[in-house]
Simulated assay, not measured.
Amino acid sequence: MAIQKHIKLLVQLLIVALAFGIANGQGLKLGFYQKTCPRAEGIVWRTTANHIYRAPSLAAALLRMHFHDCFVRGCDGSVLLNSTKNNVAEKDGIPNLSIRGFQVIDAAKTAVEAACPGVVSCSDILALVARDAIHQIKGPYWPVPLGRRDGRVSIASETLTQLPAPFANITQLKANFASKGLSVKDLAVLSGGHTVGISHCSTITTRIYNFTGKGDTDPSIDPNYVPKLKSRCVPNDKTTLLSMDPGSTKSFDSDYYSVVLKRRGLFQSDAELLNDKITRAYVKLQAQSHGRTFFQDFQKSMVKMGKIGVLTGKAGEIRRHCAVIN
């Protein structure tokens, strides 16, 4: 039964890959390590599964880590590097202080290094782990063409200029995604990743207590929802956790779009999806059709995102340890 399931998954992956036409893109290709480290993808899958089984909430964290890596200097594993005495790295930038799950990447890298020393990049491992983790919580499974190499530069200040902020408006969000080669539809689709995961009250206290500096509430929030948010988050609360998609925070589904349509999106950036005709139409489509095309769309957008600014060929390096350059 397990073998049949695995074969079915491989067939589905092949069909999706052919449909996307991404077998060779920007120097990346499916099965890149087939000859040099044929067990790599299986090792990463098993390592990820071991962690997700014990802590399913890590799936959202690992997806976020991959997103934050790709949006700063491209998908080069720079988010994994530690700061040094001469440099503050991305992981210590303000938007990344809440990132977690580095132990999963380190465990996968250790296991792969034991099988094939110096062959598989940390950036490829991160891309695979993010995909595997989401699929292991019943999310979509997308093809991950490989061949990324690891960057040697990681600068904390770049996280402030390159990552979309939770308080960004729709114009800023569209410009940010466009600068990465992603479309307005990709913005709507990838925002759906907020169907899983948590955030802190500190990200929304301004929205509910002092939106314009006059002690007011963001008018884009459903007024009937504000009392519930205030009951959870007091002013200056920096510790209380909130679900991005209440009631379905551990399940990868399309409920996020129903939440946004009800004007109950947690971030201002979620609410802003209703302020553009393309993103608004996508939100309505998924909310009203119960996510009819969401999984397929998410697969396609994740493949596109995974190609942002990749280093291939002789660029970059293959790190032996993901947190430090060779």
Rank of each mutant, 00 (worst) to 15 (best):
E272M: 15
S57T: 13
A127R: 03
F102L: 15
L10M: 12
D276V: 14
V120S: 00
D222P: 07
K109S: 05
N224D: 08
G247W: 13
M65D: 00
A59S: 12
P145G: 05
A19I: 11
L97I: 15
M305W: 07
G265T: 12
M244W: 04
I325Q: 01
L273F: 13
A114K: 15
K185E: 14
P38W: 08
D245G: 03
C70S: 11
G306P: 01
Q288G: 05
Q162E: 14
M1T: 14
A127W: 08
A323K: 09
N169R: 04
F167S: 06
A19P: 02
L242K: 02
A130F: 13
K304S: 12
L62N: 00
V16A: 11
R232D: 00
P166L: 01
S243P: 06
G316A: 09
I308Y: 07
A188G: 15
H66R: 11
F71E: 02
V189M: 00
A271F: 02
G306E: 04
K250R: 04
N326A: 10
D237N: 15
E158R: 11
S83Q: 03
R280P: 03
A107H: 06
L13Y: 05
N326S: 15
A61M: 04
V226R: 03
P235I: 12
T240F: 00
N96S: 12
S179M: 02
L190D: 00
T48H: 03
H6W: 12
V259Q: 03
I198K: 10
D222G: 00
T84R: 08
V184G: 03
Y53M: 07
F252H: 05
I308N: 04
G197E: 09
T48L: 06
L97C: 00
F267L: 07
V79P: 01
L18M: 09
S157H: 06
K262C: 00
A2I: 14
R152W: 04
G213C: 08
G25F: 09
R152T: 15
S289I: 14
I94S: 01
L182M: 05
I125D: 02
P166D: 08
I155H: 01
V79K: 02
V11D: 03
R46T: 13
P227L: 05
N224A: 13
